[in-house]
């Protein structure tokens, strides 16, 4: 009896899981589907599930805009912002996790609270700062802003991962004659590598998808893929085929990358459980 209930529960959970997964994936699926339709098919009602696929939208997208230029900007900005953020966050999280002071908790909460501010609230000051420092429409400028917006989350995540590392292991390193730097690089980092990898991956995804600052701080030279998509939602009317093709092209690399590193990501997020 008990076994039977268990089996039916398991089937129920499986169905629910698939349902949620399909529901979440449906927009992406529909976007990819639409990108292979002609503009007429794309807006036809009722929508067609079966049709003759065409690459015409992709051809037009590539004709109208230099995809590689935008993609390269996105890669530079995401990788750059992530690298700087990790480099800054590792020592910060290390000191907060292993040498906490009275103010550690408050600092962490304050950092998180900066994420609660709507970005538009600081748009004008940041725009003026970027303009005065000649960082408007540069990859450097955008990377710095992306890095700063993600830094709180990255510090928080690393802090959580570092807390899982038993302090005596680091103390053993110190007894063995390691300097603080060696303790961090030779003992802590190898132990927290899965956590750092999944944090970096998350940062990469957040930077890749970041649209608000990209649209406001770049125009042509440093415009990333989010700006590339936006350029296809024109005021003269929506061309769903081309918009879908552009969007598919924009998300494809990070989607594939995320898929490949999925194992690492899950391992990192369940770091504490498998210690």
């Amino acid at each position: 009896m008990a076994l039977k209930t268990k089996t039916s529960t398991r089937i129920g959970v499986t169905i629910l899981g698939w349902g949620i997964a399909l529901w979440l994936f449906f927009p992406i699926f529909w976007m990819i589907l639409t990108s292979f339709k002609s503009e007429v098919q794309a807006i036809s009602t009722p929508p067609k599930l079966f049709f003759m696929p065409t690459l015409s939208s992709y051809a037009e997208v590539f004709e109208r805009a230099n995809y590689w230029h935008f993609a390269l900007n996105t890669v530079i900005v995401s990788v750059g912002a992530t690298a700087i953020a990790i480099a800054l966050a590792v020592p910060a999280a290390y000191s907060m996790a292993f040498m906490p002071s009275k103010r550690t908790r408050g600092t962490l909460l304050w950092m998180l609270s900066t994420r609660m501010l709507p970005p538009v609230g600081v748009l004008v000051p940041i725009y003026i700062l970027a303009r005065n420092t000649h960082l408007l429409d540069t990859c450097t400028g955008l990377a710095i802003v992306d890095m700063l917006t993600n830094l709180p989350i990255i510090v928080w995540m690393l802090y959580t991962f570092f807390r899982e590392v038993p302090a005596p292991i680091l103390e053993a390193g110190r007894m063995d004659g390691a300097t603080r730097w060696q303790e961090m690089t030779l003992v802590l980092l190898p132990l927290a590598l899965p956590g750092i990898a999944s944090t970096a991956l998350l940062s990469l995804i957040l930077c890749w998808n970041e649209a608000f600052w990209s649209l406001n701080l770049t125009s042509s030279h440093a415009a990333p893929l989010t700006a590339f998509i936006a350029s296809f939602s024109s005021p003269e009317g929506l061309f769903f085929g081309k918009l879908s093709a552009a969007s598919t092209l924009a998300v494809a690399p990070i989607l594939v990358f995320g898929w490949i590193s999925q194992k690492q990501l899950v391992r990192g997020l369940t770091f504490g459980a498998v210690k």
Binding site: G177, A178, P190, L191
Partner: peptide, 29 residues
């Protein structure tokens, strides 16, 4: 500094470096 006092410590939890083998654990210092 702890490492310069000429002491060695054995911890309750052993505190071995989990990512290093036994040889490397002893070699680290």
């Amino acid at each position: 500094e702890p490492g310069k006092r000429g002491l060695a410590m054995v911890f309750q939890s052993y505190a071995l470096y989990p990512h290093m083998n036994v040889y490397k654990n002893m070699e680290f210092g």
